[in-house]
Design a protein around this nucleic acid. Structure first.
Lengths: 185, 185
DNA sequence: TCCAATCGTTCGGCTTGACGAACACTCTCC
DNA sequence: GGAGAGTGTTCGTCAAGCCGAACGATTGGA
């Protein structure tokens, strides 16, 4: 999380955003969180400096982690072809580093190593809301991304897509391996 | 972040831990954060339900993100050789996924694609405290890890090491590429 | 030994967040 | 049209967080 910006405004916006995402009314959320709806109203209007307990209760009631309430939102689908990414520094000729994805505040990223062989696509149902997945192909070729619009990837290609909608993965060549970074919240 | 556990106890412990890590006295920290030392004393003793503004001020004064105050700590050095990791699910014979690193709460992970050629090692000075780096080799061979105890890695190998101590990276073969995930906070 | 400085804790006060009731408002349904 | 249930807002009251001062304990130097 960044320590910049006014936390109270961010919290106000986050509360409203998350509440509407879940589809709860202000009154209903207040009831579930066990706080007065007047309190919640003031929080969403930006006036107010909630205590930890209050915010915590709201986080639990909304089913979102604390962090998401004190930090801003995120992106959609992106592909960076091998060699395309911005090489942020190449101190020496024999070294380059490419920033594929700067992690948004409060996010959690689990790292998986995938080994796939050609066959029927491996479909995944939506994960929890806010989940984003990154795929970086090491070798072989594969088809990955949202089930509605999969992308073909080769070695070194990078793909970003929402993990909270149906998505798929399928090897196009034997011995395909890739790295999957699942980012939730 | 997990929504489990009593947030106030966690905060109490985190505050004391971070303050002692920085080497500040309770009085000094209170002064820098612009809050009464009595308030801080009560917070560290577990009694108290701080407001967001108070916690935020403490986070800024301590130079740590909000998240670290409401969530627990982390690990050290680990190597998972290609094929060694626990394959958590292999629904079909042509697919395996290996969990390399489960992301600790509140952490941020930036993803870099590295392309290295053999040459002198690329030394890095320590990053901010709490930083952890993950390296997964796609092709070639490389030497990476803490400068004091680098590890040789081949395709598919995974390495975890602290990023807040001097560390290094060096290609052992032409065309070596790897993924670097830098996890801070 | 005594004084001074700093440590962290405890005690009244003032401020403020949280609560509950009353409010205006919109829709639905009889 | 009017009763009803829902929305989100505003207001007065009470409790609690925050503050500042005073406290005992500890350390280092004159």
């Amino acid at each position: 999380m960044s320590n910049t910006g006014a936390p109270l405004d961010v919290i106000a916006a986050s509360l409203r955003r998350e509440r509407e995402r879940v589809g709860l009314s202000l009154s209903e959320l207040a009831k579930r969180a066990g706080i007065a709806k007047s309190t919640l109203s003031q929080l969403e209007s930006g006036s107010g400096n909630p205590s930890v307990e209050t915010l915590w209760a709201l986080g639990v009631a909304l089913g979102v982690p604390f962090s998401r309430l004190v930090d801003p939102p995120t992106p959609r689908v992106r592909v960076i072809r091998a060699g395309e990414g911005p090489a942020i520094y190449s101190e020496r000729a024999h070294y380059t580093a490419t920033l594929l994805a700067s992690c948004p505040p409060g996010a959690r990223r689990d790292i998986y190593l995938l080994n796939l062989e050609p066959g029927p696509p491996r479909d995944s149902e939506p994960h929890m809301p806010g989940t984003v997945e990154h795929v970086i192909v090491s070798s072989g070729r594969m088809l990955a991304g949202p089930r509605a619009e999969p992308v073909e990837l080769g070695p070194g290609d990078y793909l970003l897509y929402p993990g909270d909608i149906p998505h798929t993965a399928q090897a196009l060549e034997p011995g395909t391996s890739a790295l999957l970074v699942s980012e939730h919240v």
